[in-house]
Design a protein around this nucleic acid. Structure first.
Ligand SMILES: [Zn+2]
Ligand SMILES: [Zn+2]
Ligand SMILES: [Zn+2]
Ligand SMILES: [Zn+2]
Lengths: 252, 252
DNA sequence: GACAGTTCATTCAGTTCA
DNA sequence: TGAACTGAATGAACTGTC
């Protein structure tokens, strides 16, 4: 506001002057879950993570989100139990991946329990560090929770995304001569064999499909902190040596 | 931004003092379905939506509505089961699209079922977030409900509107010889070409007809939140950047 | 100071019932 | 029909840790 003189020393002459929520455009209060965001989006995101909500919206990342209507998704309406902010730029990790808030930075419920218990009686005498009920250490339990959460958030259990990958032409595969049920899904559109499109002509389609599936795996991996590559972290405070982390994509 | 009277300072001399229902002028209790409205109008509107009533009134949006006679429509009389409030400013979304009380803000019946069931047994052990009965996610079920509702509200199942589009002259089309209906795209316009009245003279008629049908499709689309272009939202709070939304008409 | 989590007043859906 | 209610979601303000 006050300073616009060209010779201004420069902390960060970000065009917006102040911090702006990358999700809804409101005034941001800092980085929350790796994303510059406002209090509202911060709260919304943690609540969503706790509930295990998946962020998918028909509009993908084209659903506009503003402060005024960040809670009325154009695609889903507002009365619906899920509001918008589920598709937009950062919050919604969507399909392509400029990984936004989507990552499991949230403390697990178990971790919170432990912390709360700890807070209750601080200087306890016999503080057993590793004494866990199930025989697992805290770290192990943490990792398990993490993996399960990542799976639930990224696995398209209804396979609805696959519908984008129908082949342009159906490939007719002759049913095995046995008593197999013909009911399957294939309508009897062409018993004539030579009508078949060349198998090779479908290779591009398979390429698309496998690309998609690989992306799915990557999305899963991105939910796991270990695999997160922070790209160019905006925060100057990131350890200099660790900043340009190589991103170990997938272990063979 | 309520400052216009220079020296006026008194407690809030807001003309209406408190919130006012944009529909009937009664005291409003907040935004309901996107419209500042009173408890009465709120209830009326939800009930109407549930019953699937379409808001059209001979007086269009010129039927005056006040608290006193908000339920006695000038056009429909008062003894009639439907009262007014079906045409006025906001409540009636009418045909033009300045989205009033918001169409799809209502929770679908299925969504309610789900919520009620959820409320019944809260602390269930295996709280599966994505576990849906039919294998559909909440979003998918929501979308289906949405589409069905939109169809039912806009589809002219009696085709009564088509009566406006009778051709001035009937075109005689000889029935095709074979049993198969050439449903494809090309009508059999070859057989006896010269007997027919000039096809071209009917083009204007077809133009009108197809225009009408396209309008029908658009009406359907407008019921779907994704396709709704909000025009100029009444609420000044809309962020300026998002106001002139492009309206993605229909995907191919 | 930055950023996790926590609290709680407020808003606005749906629900009840005279 | 509508006043009064229940309850989920929200977000500003807060506490606590590093
Ligand atoms: Zn935000
Ligand atoms: Zn959306
Ligand atoms: Zn009213
Ligand atoms: Zn009327």
């Amino acid at each position: 506001m006050s300073l616009e003189s060209p010779s201004d020393s420069p902390g960060d002459t970000e065009p917006d002057g102040d911090k702006v929520c990358a999700v809804c455009g409101d005034r941001a209060t800092g980085y929350h879950f790796h994303v510059m965001s406002c209090e509202g989006c911060k709260g919304f995101f943690r609540r969503s993570m706790i509930k295990g909500v998946r962020f998918t919206c028909p509009l993908s990342r084209r659903c506009p989100v503003t402060k005024a209507k960040r809670r009325q998704c154009q695609a889903w309406g507002s009365g619906v139990s899920d509001h918008c902010r589920r598709c937009p730029r950062s919050l919604c990790r969507g399909d392509s991946g400029d990984g936004g808030m989507g990552v499991a930075v949230i403390m697990s419920e178990e971790a919170l329990q432990r912390r709360r218990a700890l807070r209750g009686q601080r200087g306890q005498p016999g503080g057993q560090p590793g004494g866990q009920p199930g025989g697992l250490t805290a770290e192990q339990q943490e990792l398990i929770d993490l993996l399960i959460a990542a799976h639930q958030r990224t696995f398209d259990s209804s396979f609805s995304q696959f519908t984008h990958y129908w082949p342009a032409v159906r490939l007719y595969i002759p049913s095995p001569p046995g008593p197999g049920v013909p009911a399957g899904g294939s309508p009897p559109l062409s018993p004539t064999e030579d009508v078949l499109p060349d198998v090779f002509s479908m290779l591009p389609h398979f390429a698309d499909l496998s690309t998609f599936m690989i992306q799915q795996v990557i999305n899963f991996a991105k939910e796991i902190p270990v695999f997160r590559c922070r790209g160019r972290g905006k925060r100057g405070r990131d350890l200099p040596g660790a900043t340009p982390l190589t991103c170990p994509l997938l272990p063979p």
